[in-house]
């Protein structure tokens, strides 16, 4: 007989309430002008909070084994690596001078 954790309706309802609050927060934050970069970071931060709530409670990861947690995190972890490598390229493309200019490594 399996001992799988049963998440209670009250927990699900609380999470749904938090998701509504965060949705209101992300819409509200878009009307506050912090500069496009900070607005973007704030929107991403709120989206990450919503994602964590969904993954932890709706998707039962909080109650799962460590190995499942690793699997759940792996996709997002690889995504961070991809984004880092991608932007290391794109953000450096418009540099007018190479940071290596004048060094023995060329420029």
């Amino acid at each position: 007989m399996s001992e799988h954790h049963i998440v209670m309706p009250k927990t699900y309802a609380t999470v749904l309430g938090c998701l509504f609050v965060l949705m209101a927060a992300t819409i509200g934050a878009s009307y506050i002008h912090l500069g496009s970069t900070y607005n973007l970071l704030l929107a991403l931060f709120i989206a990450l909070c919503k994602m964590s709530l969904i993954v932890m409670f709706f998707m039962h990861v909080k109650y799962s084994s460590k190995l499942t947690k690793v699997f759940a995190a792996s996709g997002f972890f690889w995504l961070i690596i991809f984004f880092t490598l991608l932007f290391a390229d794109y953000m450096a493309r418009h540099l007018s001078t190479s940071p290596f200019a004048g060094s023995p490594y060329g420029g």
Binding site: I6, V7, Y12, A13, V15, L16, F57, F58
Partner: peptide, 8 residues
């Protein structure tokens, strides 16, 4: 939420 309730 309704899907999560389905699991419950």
């Amino acid at each position: 939420f309704s899907m999560a309730m389905g699991v419950y």
